[in-house]
Amino acid sequence: MLIDINAYVGNWPFQQMKYNTCELLLDRMNKFGVDISVISNLNGIFYKNTQSANEELHQEIRSARKFSDRFIPFAVINPIYAGWRDDLETSVKKMGMRGVRIYPKYHDFGITDPACIELVKRVRDYGLPVAFEYRMVDSRQRSWMDIDYVVGTTKREWNLKDILPIVKAVPDAKYMILNYANAAVLTPDEMNLVKTADLIFDTSGRTITNMSEFLKLYGTNKFAFGTHSPILDYLTGQLRIESLQPSEADERVKEQLRSGNAKKMLGLS
């Protein structure tokens, strides 16, 4: 079984996206053997009022049974925008959202802003995961209208060290850290935090140049299949798992990566 923990529908305003509706993504899943996808609405990154994006996603998934059977929706919540507590409750209780994606850079707040901490705690209290991204796109090909966290400048792209402070602030929440980019040398404390926290990375990010080494470094329970679709190609995240040699990962470990770790994170059994 294959569960993609990092996919989207919706638009990226600076470049045309293919396969960015439930229908098109489902075609992709069927073509390449993906059973279930965790999805959120890209529009939520750009709408000031993210709840409109959550409503769009909810309606799209509800529009056909084949969608609600194969997609796990995540809400996008901005905790420094009015009404977000109501939005979170509505998303979880009325719309069946199974987690929350948080965009500190796009929504412009610090990752340990009290509002962000409160949001993570509230999601934790629902028993659901929160998801943070290293980045959405490579800053070197960014549009002039995109955020200005840029490689080579003093306001660089994020690495894991930039995300860990929230894990430290709310160590008992569930975390999905997505689109692994930019290497960072962790201190022993930071590494310990990654290992002890309920935290997984997905396999879509470019910094995972050798999957086997990442499994050795963080543990086989720390990764789950992810595509970052429709922004990144649909197969590379899968290739990182399937091209592991038997000496590097046996079938049991591969199943963990394909779906086992994701199921645990998402509360599926």
């Binding site: 000031k48 409109s52 009015a82 009404g83 109501d86």
Partner: peptide
């Protein structure tokens, strides 16, 4: 101004 923010903030 941002009327979505306004209405959401004043909802309750």
């Amino acid at each position: 101004g941002d009327w979505e923010y306004m209405c959401k903030a004043l909802k309750n």
